[in-house]
Amino acid sequence: MKDVAFGQYYPVDSFVHKLDPRLKLLFLAAYITSVFLARNFWGIGLCALVMIAVILSSRVPIHKVLRAVRGVVILIAVTSVIYIFFYDGEGEPLWSWGVFAVYREGIYFALFLVLRLFLLVTCSSMLTYTTTPVALTDGIESIFRVHVVALVMSIALRMIPELTGEVERIKNAQKARGADFESGGLIRRVRALVPILIPLLISSFRIAGDLAEAMDARCYMAGKKRIKYKKLAFGPRDLVGFLVGAALVTGVVLLNVYMGSVF
């Protein structure tokens, strides 16, 4: 019954959901490029604005989006602390104590980094929230022209919730037999994983065997060309997405030129 945030599609009907997955992948690429290109707060602000628009039009609730960011909060916190306290700026520090010195640039850098990481994680999780694994792999398949990979990825993605559930079940069963996964040193903890990993491995083989049989029974022939039910087609909606993406990159570049760089 537990939920897995990673790779979990959020099933609502929205503008963003309906976009062609290839366009979404290209948009993601354009977005990441923009976030890295941005040299001042105007640029990164524009990126943030676009992200807010995307989130609003996707109808994915905001706390769901924030949950995806939760995983990198520590990373963001640690790096910003390092930037704030150890960045050697020019001119007078704002505050100093021993080896620690806080410069204006340090704070800017940290803030910039936080925004960047935040936007990067948000935009990639928006892709998985609004695109089914099948659509996503279809998109990848269509862009990179690889075939079996798409099926393998689709199965792998669909197994994530199941295997997570399996781990939970095995873990509970061993906990009930007094297993302790939380205390002790590293070696003790790694050894404590054996009673989970072995049953998990056996379960995975069993599931794989069952699945192979079920695929066989449904006339799957490796290598034979399959007709795809969901055909990808660019529509007017996708044109809007394309224009927004293109405008974003251009906008960020222009802002870099006209507003100057912070650094």
């Binding site: 599609y9 099926l151 689709s154 669909r158 079920a214 022939m221 007709i227 039910y229």
Partner: peptide, 28 residues
């Protein structure tokens, strides 16, 4: 088969039902 969890290849109902049809179907 027996196990309801181990027979589906896709995450979404429609995509899974399509799988067999895609293997033998003639048109979209």
């Amino acid at each position: 088969f027996q196990n309801p969890d181990n027979q589906t290849v896709a995450s979404i109902v429609e995509d899974d039902v399509a799988f067999g049809a895609e293997n033998v179907g003639t048109s979209r």
